[in-house]
Design a protein around this nucleic acid. Sequence first.
DNA 1: CATATATCCGACTGCCGCAGTAGGTTTTGG
DNA 2: CCAAAACCTACTGCGGCAGTCGGATATATG
Lengths: 165, 165
Amino acid sequence: MRLSTKGRYAVMAMVDLAKHGSGEPISLAEIAERQEISLSYLEQLFAKLRAGNLVKSVRGPGGGYLLAHGADGTRISDIILAVDEPIRATRCTPGAPTGCSGNQTRCLTHDLWEELGNQIHLYLSSVTLADVCAQRVLGRSGALHCQVQDRDDAASALPGAVAAE
Amino acid sequence: MRLSTKGRYAVMAMVDLAKHGSGEPISLAEIAERQEISLSYLEQLFAKLRAGNLVKSVRGPGGGYLLAHGADGTRISDIILAVDEPIRATRCTPGAPTGCSGNQTRCLTHDLWEELGNQIHLYLSSVTLADVCAQRVLGRSGALHCQVQDRDDAASALPGAVAAE
DNA sequence: CATATATCCGACTGCCGCAGTAGGTTTTGG
DNA sequence: CCAAAACCTACTGCGGCAGTCGGATATATG
């Protein structure tokens, strides 16, 4: 799963939609103003969100967008998956001439990235729009600590600017 | 923390170094051939790794690179932090004119990205080069499951191509 | 019907970082 | 001295992101 600011914009817009839309459709113009995202750019994002069946559209005046599955039924991972293109795989494509077999070190890291991808996906699929709206985003006491708890400095040295693009 | 193929290359090289280097230095030419990475590109990466105090260099013929802290003392997160530049922060810079205050939705997602960054960092800082070499990369039964276990379909629907760039 | 409001749609642009290349200079063992 | 290695600086092509522009289509409301 690719993590870019593009996906962040999409999530911001969807959270806005979840927060302000309850019943009647919300226009992109509103979202654009509140989130300070250009309208045309939002249109492109929502075209993909619609293709991914995450929102429904209502055309004409008074129209706009609605969440297709409600705030509880929309996972963050789905949003990002819909907006960001899947990315070229981890280089060692199965069956490639210089594939994984024979070159051991390559595949060791392959496992690592795959597992990291699973971690990210698991986390993002555990959070819904409703969670974000209600600020239920999990403090630093949940999650991975069960696995890292015996390490020395896992809690310290948190990265300064943490974001993935 | 930014996640790009650049960081992946660095980790591949470091794993190679951990696997083949035990005592005497390893030249970048060897690593370049084994990992199929251009030599000059590797040099750039190792310049940063050296600046980050992750490797030591030995000049002259027979020279090369050594792990500065051994395979057990080198975390994957450190490698990526050293190689990838920290990235422009999550847009709402503290104290900015159109900062977080006043625009609520923005900050809700801010928490989300911060927490996601923590998740990623926690995972990557829990894995050392030695872990990767020994294929101790954690199957899908560890980690986040303690938090997601009560959800319906967290295990299913694993993403096809999972990687972040 | 006319019009304003909205979604839709495709094409174009500037920018930045990645991945790679080129061409050097120092250091140092043999 | 010589060759092998680290070291250093600058440049390049490419692709995706973020944003823009100009439209086409649908549809409530007067």
